[in-house]
């Protein structure tokens, strides 16, 4: 028996995926006065891997969009383990347009290994569905606050993640591809996921040091699942604070800041002399 003082990135992946960890609907129950779920993309179907709806927080109307994993096998089948199809992203898009029309801030909760790879998803334009959301969120004239509550994997996470503020739970992870997929792409060996988790710098602490995550929300000792009421309250108060802060900005200020935030992400060398960091 060894006592760990510091968790390895792969340990964090396990915590982020713990079946007991609170999910989108758990946060909604604590955060919202009254939640009305909006279902369906009005084109194809209702993807339950994404939960969308409207609610009130401190008397203010908000829109909520979040990936939803299941708590048991049966629910996981219904929710496709939190991996959306194009109709899920298009439902989210519909709710984003809805939020714009009714001037509601948008809260998104990210918890997915990635968008679902399948024939049906390709036929219905998975790439387009994700791409459309990025483009719309880039310019949506309401505050957007994204929180990674579990795992954030690839474009499937970013499709609800272009935001004015990015919050991450202490043991959440966010990466360009899941550690398994990263290992398969880099080394053609998905069993090297733990090595990939380390090499890819995917923890909340890494992203905060890169300036990509704005805030880390501390978790109870042992992880969010060890004291669910505490983490639900912590996330709720962090989100309330962000809504209040962002609501003081004009739409022009908000969109200018969002532009500058994403425009600056990337590091490269130019003319072999200057190092550009963002």
């Amino acid at each position: 028996m060894t006592t760990l003082t510091e968790l390895l990135p792969w340990d964090k992946v396990q915590i982020a995926r713990n079946p007991q960890r609170p999910r989108t609907l758990d946060y909604i129950r604590v955060l919202c006065e009254d939640f009305f779920e909006l279902r369906g993309d009005r084109h194809h179907g209702d993807d339950q891997a994404l939960v969308c709806g409207i609610s009130k927080i401190d008397g203010r109307s908000v829109a909520i969009i979040g990936h939803q994993k299941g708590s048991d096998t049966k629910e996981n089948v219904r929710r496709n383990f939190g991996s959306p199809h194009p109709e899920g992203y298009r439902k989210a898009l519909r709710v984003m347009e809805h939020a714009k029309k009714f001037n509601m801030p948008i809260l998104t909760l990210i918890d997915t290994a990635g968008a679902h790879p399948s024939m049906a998803a390709e036929e219905r334009g998975q790439a387009e569905a994700i791409a459309r959301n990025l483009l719309v969120m880039a310019d949506l004239p309401v505050p957007i606050i994204a929180t990674v509550i579990g795992e954030g994997g690839s474009g499937g996470a970013l499709a609800i993640g272009v935001a004015d503020r990015l919050l991450m739970l202490e043991h959440a992870v966010y990466s360009v591809a899941s550690p398994e997929a990263s290992a398969a792409i880099l080394w053609r060996d998905s069993s090297k996921a733990s090595e990939a988790a380390k090499a890819m710098k995917i923890t909340a602490q890494d992203l905060h040091s890169f300036g990509i995550a704005d805030t880390i929300i501390p978790e109870p000792e042992g992880g969010a699942h060890m004291d669910v009421p505490v983490i639900l309250q912590a996330v709720a108060s962090a989100l309330r604070e962000q809504i209040t802060t962002l609501s003081t900005l004009t739409i022009d200020q908000l969109l200018e800041q969002r532009y500058a935030k994403y425009r600056a992400i990337g590091r490269f060398r130019q003319a072999q002399t200057t190092l550009v960091e963002g």
Binding site: L135, S175, M200, R263
Partner: peptide
């Protein structure tokens, strides 16, 4: 697709180009 060697920075390039396109629109 995204360049794995640049991790989250590679993913965020998708958002970077998207914000730039709003200016063209």
């Amino acid at each position: 697709g995204a360049r794995m060697h640049e991790g989250i920075f590679a993913l965020m390039q998708m958002a970077k180009v998207s914000v730039a396109l709003t200016r063209l629109a």
